[in-house]
Simulated scan of single mutants.
Amino acid sequence: MKIKKGDHVMVMAGKDKGATGTVIAAYPTANKVLVEGVNMIKKNKKVTNQGFRGAKEGGIVTQEAPIDVSNVQLVDPETKRPARVGYKINEDGTKVRVLRPSGKEI
């Protein structure tokens, strides 16, 4: 998977097309990523007595759901446009990610 935690990405398909955000978590086995503020869902949370001073917390919570990695692209920090990602081997033998249009290292 070429998208990692902390990357700034743009959604290319789906109900949140055009939205940008930071990757909160990456799930390589499922080919999914969790993007901040994208694919928001409502979830029912059970009431617990573990809140502040024994207050009951629960109800309907809004949170992000994972989105398929094929629906997001990395955003070029200079041009602010989505770009494909590739790999390049440095002269010292390390593998680094590069942006395809410009060839700059990430």
Rank of each mutant, 00 (worst) to 15 (best):
S70M: 07
A13C: 07
G6D: 09
H8V: 09
K17Q: 13
N71M: 10
I106Q: 04
K45S: 14
I41T: 13
K17T: 15
A25K: 15
M1S: 14
I89C: 01
A30T: 12
E91L: 13
F52H: 11
D7F: 13
A19E: 09
R100I: 14
T20H: 06
T62N: 06
D76T: 00
T29M: 13
A19I: 05
D7W: 06
V85F: 03
K5R: 15
Q50I: 02
V61R: 07
G103F: 00
V75F: 02
F52L: 13
I106R: 00
V72W: 01
R84K: 14
P77Y: 06
K17I: 11
G59W: 04
I41Q: 14
D92W: 12
T22Y: 13
K88Y: 02
V85N: 07
V23Q: 01
G18Y: 05
K95S: 13
V33A: 11
V47E: 10
Q63F: 00
E57K: 10
G86Y: 02
E57A: 08
R97D: 02
K2I: 12
L74Y: 08
T29A: 14
Y27D: 15
T29L: 15
E91C: 06
N31E: 11
G6N: 10
T29R: 12
K32T: 15
N71V: 10
I106T: 05
G54T: 04
V35L: 07
E57Q: 11
R84A: 12
Y87G: 08
Q63N: 05
R81S: 12
G54M: 01
M1W: 05
H8W: 10
P82L: 03
V35W: 02
T79P: 00
G6F: 01
E64K: 01
N49Y: 12
I41P: 08
I24A: 04
G103N: 06
K80H: 10
V96W: 06
K43Q: 11
K88W: 03
G51N: 10
D76W: 00
L74S: 01
A25S: 13
A55I: 04
V47S: 11
S102G: 12
A65M: 02
V61C: 01
E36C: 11
D92I: 09
E78R: 07
N39I: 06
